[in-house]
Design a protein around this nucleic acid. Sequence first.
DNA 1: GCCAACGTTGGC
DNA 2: GCCAACGTTGGC
Length: 156
Amino acid sequence: MARKFWLMKCEPDAYTIDDLARDKTTSWEGVRNYQARNFMRDDMQVGDGVLFYASNADPSGVTGLAEIVQDGYPDHTAWTKGHHYFDKASTREKPVWYMVDIGFVERFPGVVPLETLKSTTGLEQMKVVQKGSRLSVQPVTKAEFDIVVRLGRKKR
DNA sequence: GCCAACGTTGGC
DNA sequence: GCCAACGTTGGC
């Protein structure tokens, strides 16, 4: 199976590429959207590339790269009563929510702002540039991934 | 902080 | 199964 590519969003208040650089790996718990869950549960594989995207940031954009180091497994935070991510619909026997683990790869010298993504040829189809797109885990093509990496590594 | 767009829920 | 109401996301 060929390597696939993804974009994963996170608000800087919750987690940043610098946190990931420090932690080396982290579990991506708390996703409570079925489409995003399906990608993590069914499609992500160890070694897949990840664009790390900071949402609700100043400016929002891609701040670095990560990779999948553990593919989909049940999100246990959904089982913990009182936990922020608790969901009574999810049980150990029949988990509803899944997560993956990602590992640090690279921190870009500067953020690649959403505005740049929007104005770059070849990225028109990316979900993140489309108005009203709220999907926090989304597939990207290899071509899109490579363009964003090139933008991210560019000296500015 | 505002608010438009979205996904989910629940009454019918 | 429709759709209004609601809560959340996320750019600005």
